[in-house]
Amino acid sequence: MESKASIGKMADEFLQVFKKGEEFTKELLKENERLRFRLVELEESVNRSGGEGRAKLFQHRIEDLEAEIEFLKDKFIKVEEENKDFAVRYVEVEEENNNLANLYVASYQLHSTLDFNEVLRIILEIVINLVGAEKFAVFLMDEKTNELLPVAAEGVSAAEIPRAKIGEGIIGNVTKDGESYFSQDMNAKGDILKGEPIVCIPLKIKEHVIGVISIYALFIQKKNFTNVDYELFNLLAGHAATAVFSSRLYTQSERKLTTLQSFLDLLKEKPKR
């Protein structure tokens, strides 16, 4: 009987322990469930807070980049403006360079010879090719008669051009005053017989006028004068004058030298007996 009672007691104790074990297991499972839920919550929270941080970081980065873009845009606009300035300046320098080349070539050619006729030919070439004149004449002062004689012409025969007297008409007044004459209407035709050019440039050595270039018509494609044309006229006024003057002197001295040489040769000849 005693053993049956002790066995029953033991069974009760075992059941008690088993129940406690069951309860403990249930509690463990519950705790585990809670912890898993918490873990998920924490993970979500961590993820959420990490995304915001990243978003903030990206936001800052975007703001920096936008500021940089604005800065670069400003810089680009400034560089573009500078480029435009440079382009304009480049065109101006190119034009100036071309003008200087024209003036250099004209001056080089004018002083490339001491032959009077060659100098006249070069003056004609410059006025035709660089100025764009179709009809014009070169007058030189005849010191004996005090008249201006046409010595070379283009587009018209020099023989058809009347002489001009100092102080009379456009040509005469340009010679007297030493100031260039430019007609109001460059496309008009000058009157050769009346001595009315559209442009008249004095050929001057310092203040002494030795002749003029008288232009009566420009080529149809030449509508007006540019800065380089006026520079060319200034160059012609001075350089053509000195080239004409020196070539004339040289030709005269050559002629005198030939005459003197002939005399010397005659003197050197042994007298015939």
């Binding site: 080349a101 070539v105 070069i122 070439e125 410059i126």
Partner: peptide, 12 residues
């Protein structure tokens, strides 16, 4: 034919 123009063009 013009030496002036030849020189000018060659220059260019």
């Amino acid at each position: 034919d013009s030496p002036t123009m030849r020189q000018l063009i060659s220059f260019a």
